[in-house]
């Protein structure tokens, strides 16, 4: 059965896109069928996986505007996962959807056409709590929260959980919080440890291990248009994402 996971945190720069690209590549390399959906108008996931967002004819924007079916906009990537890419036009989708009744369900209904082809669908949310993020939370079975272990990110988790509860009540009662994934983690600082401990206990959230250590390798990978699993496959970060993917496939986290 397909598991659809929204990777969300309205705080920017917490490694949502890196998590989607890396987990997607790790899952695909273990033989899973994976679709990644770029829901950020900045199209960072699309760029990170080797596509030029400015040169795309079809994107998730066209799907959300009901111009084409989801399968028409999906492309394959060299790292293994399929990708529904984004362009800057996605910013217009947000505006266009805002006045439409049933706007929260547009992505869910679009994905219904392709869901059965995949074992995993990972949704890369934009760093905001707008209509696109609501669409992701409505289409998802679970939400994975990348958490940069510092105070402002901690605060963002509380806001996101408020939104998750609204979504559970209004548009997707099946939605579950998979857990928080510590990213950009620096185990040497007391602050990172304290944030992680407080988030976990305050919200009763599962901390998904291993934490993803801060590394320059993640910043270098998008330049090559490949995930860190290819550009620095033996790095600690790549190994950590492989381990998280392995635990997801084994059913040790989520579901």
């Amino acid at each position: 059965m397909t598991r659809t996971i929204a990777v969300a945190n309205q705080k920017g720069g917490v490694a949502k896109t890196t998590t989607v690209a890396s987990l997607g590549a790790a899952l695909a390399s273990s033989g899973q069928r994976v679709l990644l959906v770029d829901l950020d108008p900045q199209a960072c996931l699309t760029f990170s996986l080797g596509l030029d967002p400015d040169g795309l004819e079809l994107s998730v924007h066209d799907v959300l505007m009901d111009r084409v079916g989801a399968s028409m906009a999906i492309v394959s990537t060299p790292d293994g996962p399929d990708l529904m890419p984004a362009t800057i036009d996605l910013a217009g989708s947000e505006v266009a959807l805002l006045t439409r009744t049933g706007r929260e369900f547009v992505l869910k209904q679009a994905l219904d056409d392709v869901r059965r082809r995949y074992d995993w669908i990972l949704l890369d949310c934009s760093p905001s709590l707008g209509v696109l993020t609501l669409n992701a939370l409505t289409a998802a079975d679970e939400v994975l929260i990348p958490l940069q272990c510092e105070t402002l990110s901690h605060r963002g988790v509380g806001q996101l959980l408020d939104t998750v509860r609204d979504v559970q009540r209004l548009t997707n009662k099946r939605l579950r919080v998979m857990g928080v994934l510590p990213t950009l983690f620096d185990a040497r600082t007391n602050h990172a440890q304290a944030v992680l401990a407080d988030v976990s206990s305050r919200y009763d959230l599962r901390v998904i291990e291993p934490p993803i250590a801060k590394s320059i390798r993640f910043a270098e990978a998008p330049a090559a248009g490949r995930s860190v699993l290819v550009t620095a496959g033996t790095s600690k970060g790549a190994q950590a994402y492989r381990e998280v993917a392995r635990r997801m496939v084994a059913g040790e986290v989520g579901a």
Binding site: L98, R100, R103, E104, K108, R169, L170, T171
Partner: peptide
């Protein structure tokens, strides 16, 4: 406010 993001207004959690 934030509620404006939702078109659903009840407890039904169903697409129109």
């Amino acid at each position: 406010g934030k509620r404006a993001l939702f078109s659903a207004t009840g407890d039904e959690a169903t697409p129109p």
